[in-house]
Design a protein around this nucleic acid. Structure first.
Lengths: 121, 121
DNA sequence: CAGAATCCTCTCTGATACTG
DNA sequence: CAGTATCAGAGAGGATTCTG
């Protein structure tokens, strides 16, 4: 376990992949790539995400320097999240994956059906 | 939940992302991209993966049509896994992500340290 | 409005044992 | 060799409640 962990942490790809793996991170990054948004605005936009996960995902993204948080001390606090330059480059890099997904989803689904039908017969 | 699920399943990107999210799937795909391998061979190569996860990940990848399984009915059964054409295109698409990871890992780590040091002060 | 803290459930994963 | 089946622990994630 420890040995293995050393390997993992030494692997930059895993770190990035783990972030990508986050169910919401990519979604949020994509949203913020279009423009800055506030907390509850994102909450409504994503709709389905719990407040906990939202705040957690945002925190991770901010920690990684992919998005930035700006709090304005108005009466009810106003917080605005926006994508960073670094975040934009990642978002751009993820795009090919989206394209791959869209153009190959058919093949994948077909493969799944074939498999589920008992392909190994 | 149901509403949201409908959205998710309708989103090809999520399906692909979920597969990428699999801690081992990408690793295995990358390994098999180099050439066919047998079960216990992969087990040793990855080392750290449990037999359960290996078999599970391989099954998912096969189901998605990303790798293929060929069993030869020798005395002790011989099973060989190899990447498919579809799998190769995905593997190729994931590469940019690896490159991004390698070339930006410094920035991410720096951002993390900055954040952990109490950036919001 | 933008969260933090708590509780509780449900899935994922590892360890172990057994089979063709 | 190449798995499957079962059990138990850790952790992710949701719902709810409370605060600056």
């Amino acid at each position: 376990m420890t040995t293995w962990n050393a390997y993992v942490s030494a692997c930059p790809t895993r770190l990035v992949l783990d972030r990508i793996a986050d169910k919401w991170a990519v979604l949020l990054l994509g949203l913020l790539a279009k423009g800055p948004m506030r907390f509850n605005q994102l909450r409504r936009e994503v709709e389905g995400i719990s407040q906990k996960m939202l705040s957690q995902s945002l925190k991770s993204l901010e920690r990684d320097g992919l998005i930035s948080r700006k709090a304005t001390p108005t009466v009810p606090v106003t917080v605005e999240y926006s994508i960073t330059l670094l975040g934009e480059t990642l978002s751009a890099t993820v795009d090919p994956l989206r394209l791959w997904a869209e153009s190959h989803i058919e093949q994948v689904l077909t493969a799944q059906q074939h498999y589920d039908a008992g392909a190994s017969t």
